[in-house]
């Protein structure tokens, strides 16, 4: 049976269309489902293999980004959600979705699902940042298979992962740090703006649960899935024209979605 994806919407989530488009582009069917619909009919989760919580501004980031939406999900949907991630499924939270997964305690879930181990809080600059970043990937997560680096954008005001020292060492030891901000030369950003756009501890841009099937990622792969979306598109396009070659349609971000296909193949 082909895998199907639920992309959540509602209460200020706003990247559901382009996120579903990314899945559709790689051949995964799915539906955008309003959170209230899912709460009304949580058994719908049984019919899907992938859950995507897209980017956005759920509840306007009030009381901390992702917090209010996560509280709503926890109060109304927790048992079904837990059952879903414990099955052989894939879950991805992008940007606001990442913040929601963290507040739900689905990532990194160092001990148990449902416990908050880390925070994603205000950028060190206290300012929203929309810019392209480079990521180094070292992860066993099925979402990130065979990916070494990614050039995709961030767009957030609260993307700074913070945690206690021992949580950080557990993350490292468990291989749960999925992506780190790097300089253009490949070295770690070392907390320096703008390569690390938010001051995130250990340059962390994404993390997974222990199984690797739940990915919480601040940057937006769906905004870097096509070459024409890239910040250097005009340079690449010009170079391709000079060289007399076709520019590839796809860019690096699409690999994450293709990996979902591979996982269920």
């Amino acid at each position: 049976m082909a895998a199907k994806v639920i992309v959540l919407s509602g209460y200020g989530l706003n990247c559901e269309e382009e996120t579903l488009h990314a899945f559709n582009h790689v051949g995964i069917d799915g539906n955008i489902i309003h959170i209230n619909e899912l709460i009304e009919n949580p058994k719908a989760l049984d019919e899907y293999q992938i859950l995507a919580i897209p980017g956005g501004f759920s509840y306007g980031d009030d009381t901390g980004s992702g917090n209010a939406f996560a509280q709503k999900m926890k109060l109304a949907l927790w048992d079904d959600l837990k059952k879903f991630v414990e099955r052989d499924t894939l879950t991805i939270g992008i940007c606001n979705g990442c913040q929601i997964l963290v507040n739900l305690g689905l990532a990194p879930a160092l001990n148990n699902y449902g416990e908050r181990d880390v925070a994603v809080t205000y950028n060190a600059t206290a300012r929203y940042q929309c810019r392209w970043v480079d990521l180094k990937i070292e992860s066993k997560s099925p979402w990130l298979k065979d990916i070494e680096t990614l050039h995709i954008p961030v767009a957030h005001g609260e993307g700074r992962f913070m945690m206690e020292e021992n949580a950080l060492s557990k993350l490292k030891n468990n291989g749960q740090i999925a992506a780190q901000y790097i300089n253009t030369n490949g070295t770690l950003a070392n907390g320096e703006f703008p390569a690390n756009p938010n001051g995130s501890i250990n340059d962390i841009a994404a993390m997974t649960d222990k199984s690797g099937r739940v990915l919480a990622i601040m940057p937006h792969p769906e905004r870097g899935m096509f070459t024409w979306q890239r910040d250097d598109y005009h340079e690449l396009k010009d170079a391709a024209q000079r060289a007399g070659v076709e520019l590839p349609e796809e860019s690096e971000g699409i690999q994450i979605f293709k990996n979902a296909v591979k996982y269920f193949a």
Binding site: C15, Y128, Q129, C130, P153, A155, R223, F226, Q229
Partner: peptide, 9 residues
């Protein structure tokens, strides 16, 4: 950089 210019992809 404060304005999200690539939402909606």
């Amino acid at each position: 950089t404060q304005y999200d210019h690539n939402v909606q992809g």
